[in-house]
Design a protein around this nucleic acid. Sequence first.
DNA 1: CGAGCGCTTGATTGAGTTCAAAAATCGTGG
DNA 2: CCACGATTTTTGAACTCAATCAAGCGCTCG
Lengths: 192, 192
Amino acid sequence: MSYLYLTDFLNLKEISSDLQQELQTCIQVKEVKKGEIIISKGDLKHKKFYVRNGLLRSYIIDSKGREHIYMFAPEGWVVSDLVSLTGNQPAIMFVDALEDSTLEVIDDERIWKLKDRFPELMTSESDRMLRRIAVLQQRVIMLLSASAQERYEAFLTKYPDLIQRIPQKMIASYLGVTPEALSKIRANMSKS
Amino acid sequence: MSYLYLTDFLNLKEISSDLQQELQTCIQVKEVKKGEIIISKGDLKHKKFYVRNGLLRSYIIDSKGREHIYMFAPEGWVVSDLVSLTGNQPAIMFVDALEDSTLEVIDDERIWKLKDRFPELMTSESDRMLRRIAVLQQRVIMLLSASAQERYEAFLTKYPDLIQRIPQKMIASYLGVTPEALSKIRANMSKS
DNA sequence: CGAGCGCTTGATTGAGTTCAAAAATCGTGG
DNA sequence: CCACGATTTTTGAACTCAATCAAGCGCTCG
């Protein structure tokens, strides 16, 4: 089958058949059911996942036992506990499926070894990191400067396609407010 | 003079004299006074700065005219409006000096051209991006899950050397609270 | 069909903001 | 080196946004 997925993941226009061959040995397709946990806090040799289709989320559980969603990952996105992973640390986050999903499990160590022969892999990695930084930067700025309603409006604008797929209480969690607060904000918004 | 600074910036153990020669053409030393603005919102061809010594900060001004500090950059750190810069967009942030500082202005385009000949530059870039992601991730988690006091305590632990160098109102701004709130938190903490 | 989950609505509480003013600290010029 | 003005920090009172607590409604999926 075609590895259009992978090419997309790597953000490469062209992909040599040589590289493609190699990459296939680094990828393993995995089907997960809604609700399935893919990475748990404390996991040691956790992986990166490319979402071929479906929807994942990563979240932390704080000291008071409350859940906070760090990011959503719909098709085309990559999820992992990147920081823990590259630091060879146990995961601090959970990742689970909000929908039945098809994933590509990425063997990062193996890809790492290909980087000498295929320098374009480095560029692709840098691109993805930069996009992550852009998202996180925007998130920090929002959390610092915007009210709950403004954050919700920004979310609607940025991810209009996700709102129907994600339960409201999870959007609330992503925005850093309680489900009740978000419900009231919505009620208030539809009035005017 | 020695370019130990640069080596540090690039996070490279060894640096070939060949590479060092090339890099010197990408670097320009700049002295700035406390209070001096180095990047303004809207700037088009803004730069990256390595802080040789001193202290910088980057911040945004929101729609209500309020200042929010995005990061501090003491010696050894690199500051820029990375996202705008790599996207060839006008800066959305300001950067200014909290102390008289010595900077190395980095000509990123020129360094970019060296990447083919010196692949270690890519690795170094990736490392720095990953560290930035780690900081931002921690920041998002803190803003989502921790009270003002908890955020302040975490700041004290993480940057104990910075607290004497940064006015409290700016620490407050970084933490996402008002100066008054931080002052009360401190008063409260010293009681117990 | 019913039990549980998600969303809503309302009442109460509380963390942090806003406004104001006094106290402490800093920087600068004489 | 001191003195004065400006900025920063503190303190207090009133207020506000969002959290918490609680109860009721509507689905869905088992």
